[in-house]
Design a protein around this nucleic acid. Structure first.
Length: 228
DNA sequence: ACCCCGTAATTGTTTACTTCA
DNA sequence: TATGAAGTAAACAATTACGGG
């Protein structure tokens, strides 16, 4: 797949597709506001808030009689450190988690949750990018298909001359042609014999995913029903 | 007042690993 | 020693709920 993260741990993804560049990041999600220093409403002193945050990992603080827990908002510095850590590693071992939690004055559980959500966001972002890429690819293939159908119609209309394939490289010397036929059911051009060394080249070009050039001319002969 | 979005947090499931009979 | 059941921990997916614009 041609979706390549520019960094294995960053949300900035690059798709290697002509005419399509995207360098979106979640950086915008890091708020400038630093409202996490003290919980909203100023109901707690900062030390109390930190103590609350550092309480035992698995304790549900809202159920132990205290006031209902306010939703945490990470400070810019906390976000920055977490992002930095995420860039180095998408998962944390217990020791790293503990250390990071200590450093950030958060509970290990909060660090764990942050990494979980961050992995999910990362994956979502990548999926969106892949989706976008596939949509464009689909569009390109549809267009290519249309073009080829048109070409087939033109060729059908011609139905003239000996069965030759004109080489795009040495136009003066037509190649020995394979017998090209059109399946009436699936409307596929197929070769039914191999006279030339690379008789299928032109057909392969026509069905490959890269944009075909129209410099290759295929002359169809009266149809021979392929067996399939 | 209401809606939408971003995200912290919760819940349930899956998976890998360990222990023990 | 091999094996299957039970227990555990970590990761994940889906979802909820909060707070701010």
């Amino acid at each position: 797949m041609a979706v390549l993260p520019s960094s294995s741990s960053s949300l900035e993804l690059t798709i290697s597709m002509p005419g399509f560049t995207s360098t979106q990041s979640l950086a915008s999600s890091v708020r400038d506001l630093d409202i996490n220093q003290v919980p909203s409403g100023g109901a707690y002193l900062e030390e109390e808030w930190l103590t609350l945050n550092m309480e035992d990992d698995d304790q549900d603080q809202s159920s132990n009689g205290g006031p209902p827990q306010k939703k945490l908002r990470l400070t810019n510095e906390q976000s920055r450190l977490l992002e930095e850590s995420f860039r180095q590693n998408h998962t944390l071992n217990p020791k790293q988690k503990e250390g990071l939690a200590m450093q950030l004055k958060l509970r290990p559980r909060q660090v764990e949750v942050w990494f979980q959500n961050r992995r999910a966001r990362s994956k979502l972002k990548q999926t969106e990018m892949e989706c976008e890429y596939l949509k464009r690819w689909f569009g390109s293939l549809t267009e290519q298909n249309r073009r080829l159908h048109r070409e087939v119609e033109e060729l059908r209309a011609l139905k003239v001359g000996p069965p030759t394939v004109i080489s795009p490289h040495m136009s003066s010397k037509p190649l020995l042609a394979s017998t090209l036929t059109m399946c009436p059911r699936c409307e596929r051009v197929t070769t039914t014999s191999m006279i030339n060394k690379s008789p299928t080249k032109n057909v392969i070009m026509a069905t490959s995913t890269s944009a075909p050039t129209l410099s290759t001319k295929v002359v169809l002969v009266p149809p021979i029903q392929p067996r399939h």
